[in-house]
Amino acid sequence: MTVEQIVFLLISAFTLSTAVIVVTKRNLFHAALALMATFLGVAGLYVTLDAGFLAAAQLLVYIGAISILVIFAIMMTRRLMQTTEPAYNAQSGFALVTAVISFGLIFWVFYVFREFWPLIPDAVTPLASKPIVADEILQGSVVVMGRSFVSSAAYVLPFEIASVLLLAALVGAIIVAWPKAEDKA
């Protein structure tokens, strides 16, 4: 095993174990903490894939923003100090089905389409090391990404649609969370 593989295994073990804590902890606040650790582990996985920008984005958006939102939501809706939630609720069966289906989908994509997947060598082993890419390409990848967000030949339409999506999310959230004007008076 190379150093890279050991690092990968360690980070994956960390991510998975914290993810298990998220679903087993009865105390919602601790579960949220473990969720942050899971996000950190995912950021670590991005770094091992040489995707530094994604790792930083993961940190900024998921730990810095989404987790705060999650904790705020927990604090506003639950009695904090006594919180011990039951491990199962009415949606657990549905959640199980969703989890199995999405896992199957990912597995199918990777297994069935592995010959179309140029980066994975033919003999797929879980520990196949990643391809070597020149450092200049990696350093410039963020710039390439930024350029393709807004060039007419690439992803400018999805980019604008993302903006509309964000706008819809903001407006929707305010409509749901904010009391109506007449309620306030």
Binding site: M36, G52, A57, L60, I68, V142
Partner: peptide, 22 residues
């Protein structure tokens, strides 16, 4: 000298918000 230096700073400093909440 990270190629995303400023973004790195923003990402790390957003963690301190979590610490306050904790």
């Amino acid at each position: 000298d990270l190629n995303i230096g400023i973004f790195y700073f923003l990402a790390i400093s957003s963690v301190s918000v979590v610490a306050l909440l904790l």
